[in-house]
Design a binder for these strands. Structure first.
Length: 328
DNA sequence: GTCCGGTGTG
DNA sequence: CACACCGGAC
């Protein structure tokens, strides 16, 4: 092993967080946890992961699972298309690979929802294949190590970094540790702001002249603002929910109406709420409408909690409605 | 308010 | 290549 690899792995062995989902090295569990970890802090995604594995212990159970139930298990995690892709991928694994994930990065890459990072993570961590797993942490570590000042959001620069990582890989015996060590270094030491260079185990290899300024990413353009009026229809102890379109923002999840119901008995203004997505802000006013008749889209609070996937954007209104029904 | 992040699509 | 897609940390 090269000195650089040894320094990094030694540090990792003594300093890494105990990430239980990577200990078992079960490809299925690595896959689910990596997809979940892509958009959330580890602590936030952990309860989701535990619940998912408990209810869906293998790929076949995912392939058979109802979309509504999968969405409910994913509710609040964001980037819901990942959940949809997990199901597509599970079905493909059942059809083509006997209910297992394929073993190599190259084959994994062909599956829906699995890109270069996830393919590399599964192949190297679960199967010991000597391939890279370049996530945002690794981009940051390598942009600093090699003082790469170009825009890392460009595909060409990412490719360049991936090549440097590929050249740095140790033998297959150490590959799992090595890839995790790079990510863990990025998570604990080589952090975005105020990197902790004083205690960095690989600082003697680092060429960054101003580490805190790397990696360079151009400013994102301003979000566009959309104004919405949400009408929460209720009848007796039930709330009206509607399934959203299967493309676009929050596809296939549930929400509230954006039209007034007929037969209103009483209207109550709710507290407005601004929900911020990456490119859009929803500035929402909301009205609670008490309606004197019912249809099949009215659900009790218990039914909503049990199987209606309601994204975070609507939660503040849901909370206010719960409060209203509870007081009544 | 700012920043973070993999993959799919167009 | 740029942009859509989410929620949370600070």
């Amino acid at each position: 092993m090269k000195e650089f690899q040894k320094d990094l792995i030694d540090w990792y062995i003594h300093n890494h967080r105990p990430l239980e989902f990577r200990l078992k090295k079960d490809p299925y569990e690595i896959w689910i946890s990596e997809i979940m970890a892509q958009q959330t802090r580890i602590e936030a995604m952990l309860p989701y992961f535990k619940r998912w594995i408990q209810q869906l212990p293998d790929i076949e159970s995912v392939a058979k699972c109802d979309d509504e139930k999968l969405n409910k298990l994913w509710q609040g995690l964001g980037y819901y298309s990942r959940c949809k892709n997990i199901k597509k991928c599970a079905i493909e694994c059942v059809e083509k690979y006997n209910g297992k994930l394929p073993r190599t990065k190259e084959e994994l890459l062909k599956l829906p929802g699995i890109g270069p990072y996830t393919a590399g993570a599964i192949a190297s961590i679960a199967n010991g294949q000597r391939v890279s797993a370049v996530d945002g942490n690794v981009i940051r570590v390598f942009s600093r190590l090699y003082d790469i000042c170009e825009d890392v959001t460009k595909t060409s620069v990412k490719k360049q970094i991936e090549m440097l990582v590929d050249e740095s890989l140790p033998s297959k015996e150490e590959i799992s540790y090595y890839n995790q060590a790079l990510m863990e270094l990025g998570a604990l030491i080589c952090i975005p702001k105020s990197p902790r260079c004083d205690i960095c185990p690989i600082k003697k290899y680092c060429e960054a002249s101003d580490p805190a300024s790397l990696p360079y990413k151009p400013k994102k353009s301003a979000r566009k603002i959309e104004y919405k009026h949400v009408y929460v229809w209720i009848h007796q102890n039930k709330v009206h929910v509607v399934k959203r379109a299967d493309t676009g923002l929050l596809a296939g999840l549930y929400g509230f109406d954006e039209t007034k119901p007929e037969h209103i008995i009483e209207s109550i203004e709710l507290k407005p709420y601004i929900h911020i997505f990456s490119h859009v802000e929803w500035h929402m006013d909301a009205t609670l409408c008490i309606v004197d008749r019912e249809d099949s889209n009215y659900k009790t609070i218990e039914e909503i909690e049990e199987y209606i996937a309601l994204p975070s954007a609507f939660m503040p209104f849901m909370k206010q409605v719960e409060e209203y029904l509870w007081k009544k």
